[in-house]
Every structure is written in structure tokens, then in C-alpha cells.
Amino acid sequence: MEYVFTATETGTPSGNEAEAKALLHMLDATEDGIELFAVDCFNDVTGMDNPCFVLHDAQSKAEKNISPAKLGRYLVTLLENHLSEFSQFFDSLTLFVGGVSKTVLQNPELVEFGFHDIEAKAQKKVQDSLIEECKKRKNGIDDNLLSEDNINDFLSKVHFVIFRENREDYIKPLVRTSAPIMPDSKKLKRIFTEIRDKQSALKNRAGIAGKRITHPDRVIDLGRVVKRRDIELLVIQRILNRDFLRDDTPKSFIHYLNQIPDEEDPDAITEDCRHAIYRQFFDKNNSEAFWTFLDEVVTTIDNSNQKDIEEIYDQLKVETRKACTHLERRSCLYFIATIKDGLYK
């Protein structure tokens, strides 16, 4: 069993933006267990679990007012993967588009839909166009596989999504916090642009056409995979204006370190605090605790920004501190210092 990569596409500004929106849409779908994203490998974007046994395949088209015939043509790469030797790994198939023509949907208000939501006449055009496009391409799909049953089975599994217009709408779901520290529209757009550019940089690496792999996890070796954690970490770093894993120790915490016994190592304490915050941020089973803590710290500082980090800590609700099971007193103080120095510098 092997998968052969075909020629990759040259990126365009609109195409790069569409692919970034597809990635961020899937990233927000946490129930799918997506931890990795393969960029311009199996398709425009493919979400994967860590061992790469479950793949969520996505093709994206920025074009608006797409006709039924074009919808059919744009489904080809998804069908190729559905019928490939890796078919067992593809758990979901999604076509992201900028918009569809009035002749496509029974209910034109839908922004996410299945093939059954498409008008009967339009369905026929999608099917015919898909088969015609497959026969044109040198994709290795045997004509015998393009039976009515196979095509209908494939189309029943495809999920269609119309992009949201605003870039910031793709970042807001990643910032699970209240109004006081929600970045403004310009900052949210900048975060989106940074993620888009990182994704485009992977796409623009040396081509992989003709390369063969025997299992989806081999795609990691091709240097075109971005981790969910890296994207989520980038977002929180931009909100806090600090990289709490690499930046210098916050000034507010240095004052605390100056009071500890000489026998203790400040560098070790700082490192332990950073790793504790990292573990808390990425604790999927208790993700809200991190954001609740962040909100409460910001509110406390807003009420009196003259307080030092220990005074802020003492004012936090006991329930808030207890919920952050990875944070003990010192790591809480370090995080408070990070927020205080980052947000209000």
C-alpha cells in the first residue's frame, strides 16, 4: 500500500487566504481530534491526529458564485483520496468555497451543507462534471471505479462549507476570553495574516510531486506539517505580547525572585513555571480553567493596576486557582507577572 503525491499548486493571495481559513475552520473543530495539519500534500490542507491514522481532507476554492458544474470539478482531488489506497484513513472530506450560485442550494441561506441539500438538477450537473473531470485527468482512477454507486457514496460523505468573509472571525474562537482582553479587529487580522504566511511558507517549500509514502505518518518527514499547538501558542503569545517560554523573565516576577532563599535556583524556578503554564494551556480536559484564570487576573489588574503580583494572587477566587491543576503558587505568580508586564507595558 502506498500513496503517490501529485504536482503541487503555486500559491496565490486569494488561494493562500482560503487555505488558511480552511485550516482554522478545522482547528476550531476540536471534537475531531485534529493535532496536525499537512499543507499541500494530500490536498490543500489535511487535518490529522497525532499518529496520523485519522485524516480530515480539505480542498479550498476562494471563488464565489460557483456553479454546479464547477463544484463537480473542484471535488476531484477529494474523490481521488476517497478511492486511493489510503482511503481507509480519510475520515472526512470537505470542500471549502467562497460561495455558490443561486442554482445550487434548496435553501440559499445555508453556509454548511451536504449533497442532499443541493437542488436535484444541480446534483446531476455536479455528478456529471465530476465524472467528466476524472476521465480528463491522469489520476490513475480506473473508469470502473466511477460507477454511479461509488460516486453517490462519495458525494454523500462530502461536507461543503462556505467561507466566512472576515478574517477575524477565524481567530476569535481561539481566544476564549471576555471583552477586556479580546484583541481588536486589526490585531485579530494581523494574527490571521501571520498564520496564513506561516502556512504559505510550508506550501512554497521544495515540491514533493512523485514522492511515495507507505503510511500517512511519513508525511511528517516532508517538512510540510504544522502543529495545532504551534498555532494556539502563537495566538496566546500575540494576545499577551510575550512568549512565556522564551522571553526574559517578567520584571514583576524578578522582584519576587529577589526575595527567595539563596539556596534556591531562580533559573530552575522560572523554567518550572514556564512548563507548568504550558501544560495548563494545553490541558484539553480543563481548557476553560486557563482562560478563566486569565480573565480574572486581567479584571483584578484593571480594578487596581498598582497591586503587585502577590496581592493580585491573593484576590483571585479559590475556585479559579484550584481549577488550574497544573499551576502551584509560583507558576500562578509567574503567569500573573506575564500578563501584567505583557498587557500593560
Rank of each mutant, 00 (worst) to 15 (best):
Y170F: 12
K345M: 09
Q259I: 07
V76H: 04
V45N: 05
W291H: 08
E109H: 06
L130S: 02
K70A: 04
F89Y: 15
R176C: 03
D44V: 07
F53M: 12
L327V: 08
N286V: 02
A179W: 11
D221N: 14
K136S: 13
D217Y: 09
K125H: 10
R274T: 06
A206I: 10
T320S: 12
D295G: 02
N16K: 14
T10H: 04
H215R: 13
T320P: 02
N65C: 06
V76F: 03
T8K: 15
P183F: 10
G207I: 05
V158S: 06
E310R: 13
L316S: 04
R205F: 06
L55T: 02
D91V: 09
D302N: 15
R164T: 05
D230A: 15
P250D: 01
E132N: 11
L105E: 02
L78E: 00
F160A: 07
E85M: 10
L145G: 01
R246Q: 04
I66V: 15
E165N: 11
K203N: 08
N166I: 03
A22D: 06
K21Q: 14
M26N: 02
H159Y: 11
H215P: 01
N305D: 13
I277L: 13
E194P: 00
K211Q: 11
T94V: 15
E119V: 09
C134T: 00
A337Q: 01
A179Y: 12
D153N: 14
Q88W: 04
C324N: 05
I66R: 11
F281I: 10
E133S: 12
I208H: 08
V161G: 00
K102N: 09
D32C: 08
T300E: 12
L24S: 01
I118E: 02
Y313N: 07
L202Y: 03
N152Q: 15
I339W: 03
L202Q: 03
N166D: 08
K125E: 15
C134A: 08
N50I: 05
I191E: 07
V161W: 00
D32A: 08
S60C: 15
K322D: 14
F192L: 09
